[in-house]
Design a protein around this nucleic acid. Structure first.
Lengths: 246, 246
DNA sequence: TACTTATTGTGTCTTAATGACATAATAAAC
DNA sequence: GTTTATTATGTCATTAAGACACAATAAGTA
């Protein structure tokens, strides 16, 4: 197969896939074949395919999930973000066949997407170019290829700013969750501690959560109430926006 | 000259250039040769050029301005955002020579940038592919090629959201301006009226403006004081951000 | 010159949001 | 039954926001 015939030249998409598990924010990464380096899942764009759809396609094949909260956040377009040395190692390690050499030696720009999804629903699948596909906590990111560390940083930064416009917990948490879990998610994304009581007051003031009549038993101490997003109210509030400041 | 030898394939940049003049927000547009349609200034990316630099280059050649506040805001990547019919008219109207035909018939994705600059400093220059380069008020946008109307809409939307992170007046207004001019700029971008007195209070609370000791004479009625951005305080505040909400 | 007019400069008041913190309730462990 | 850690809820002072009043003044008018 000749890549030049089927894909848009010099363009890739990379997806920073966020999940929340055991009170930690994690990203789904691929371990490269015959290498210690990891990478953000990514792919190429078919000639007649919307760029957004290429990202969706890659996401589905890595996670098995179809309906995904997915947003482009930045185009990484520096002239020398890839290099010949990098492709040399790919060929040497037999990650790519030598007949694809000229495709991979192109200059590539890459469009970064971030995805939010419920950890437990994901079935990680490495695909044919990777030997492993796994969740990695944000503070344990391993050595990454190319500028993928930058791509993750920028995704997190965008997510942090996006928090002002949209309560992203809806996409990252399971149907039922405690206020504590929601707050810890916010703290992780914002990188700062929030007062437990004030957070709850503010969150409830948005009127997008339903308090359920049962609690999460099993842990030590007092059992916390469970909450769920009220889809209808959530969508209504989303139109108006959640930030009153201007 | 063969475009394929010099430029990154299937990629363009388009710049939505904002200026503020006579209390109106305007964009700099190009009128296409032999056509009634207008376009946002744009260009291609050289093979060894950062994408950002390609946008800067285009901006400099249209406005003569070197140091520009410029931000990428969205990649427009739908598969059929261009069309063969469109290129047919370009060739027919001799906007492009027929030997460039195959270059222009590629599928193009385009990266949208918005620029903020001081109206009076700009020297509009149409270049060789347009017959006119002129400022157009936002509510008088003419018929535009391709998806350029969408590109402008999205730029304005991004600018509106950006207002929460950065007082963009600094880039759009001349050194000295009245509080009234600053407020009208905000009202235009936000698309809503703001209370004159509350706006002033809020703006001054940021402590990034210096009140000058002279006023703007000439208009009828009481002469308003002039203000200027205090560069040092502005940059300090920018680090912390201007929005207290989360 | 004195008056009119439209606009600017500044202040007040009420209400809402935020930040800091206190206390009671309760599930699990001892 | 008691202890312990956590959750649920409330209070209070401070700050920000929204609505609006009134004095000051430059230019035009009589």
């Amino acid at each position: 197969m000749n890549y030049f015939d089927h894909y848009h030249p010099g363009l890739s998409v990379d997806c920073v896939i966020f999940g929340f598990h055991e009170n930690e924010l994690k990203v789904l990464l691929l371990k490269m074949k015959n290498s210690k380096k990891w990478a953000v899942p990514g792919g190429f764009v078919r000639k007649n395919e919307n760029v957004d759809d290429a990202a969706k396609r890659e996401l589905k094949s890595r996670t098995s999930i179809e309906d995904i909260y997915l947003k482009q956040f930045h185009l990484f377009g520096d002239a020398y973000r890839s290099s010949d040395q990098y492709v040399d190692t790919l060929v040497k390690d037999q990650v790519i066949q030598s007949d694809m050499d000229s495709w991979f030696r192109q200059r590539f720009i890459t469009l970064g997407y971030y995805a939010l999804l419920e950890f437990s629903k994901v079935i990680p699948s490495p695909g044919k170019n990777a030997e492993l596909c796994d969740w990695v906590p944000l503070n344990e990111i391993p050595d990454l290829i190319l500028d993928h560390a930058t791509i993750i940083d920028k995704a997190l930064l965008t997510l942090r700013n996006q928090l002002r416009f949209e309560p992203i917990g809806k996409n990252l948490l399971p149907i039922e969750f405690t206020m504590n879990e929601l707050r810890i998610l916010y703290e992780t994304i914002l990188g700062e501690e929030l007062d437990r009581r004030n957070f709850q007051r503010k969150m409830l003031s948005f009127s997008i959560l339903d308090k359920l009549d049962h609690v999460r038993k099993g842990g030590a101490h007092k059992a916390p109430f469970l909450y769920t997003f009220n889809e209808e109210k959530y969508n209504q509030s989303l139109k108006k926006g959640f930030n009153t400041v201007w």
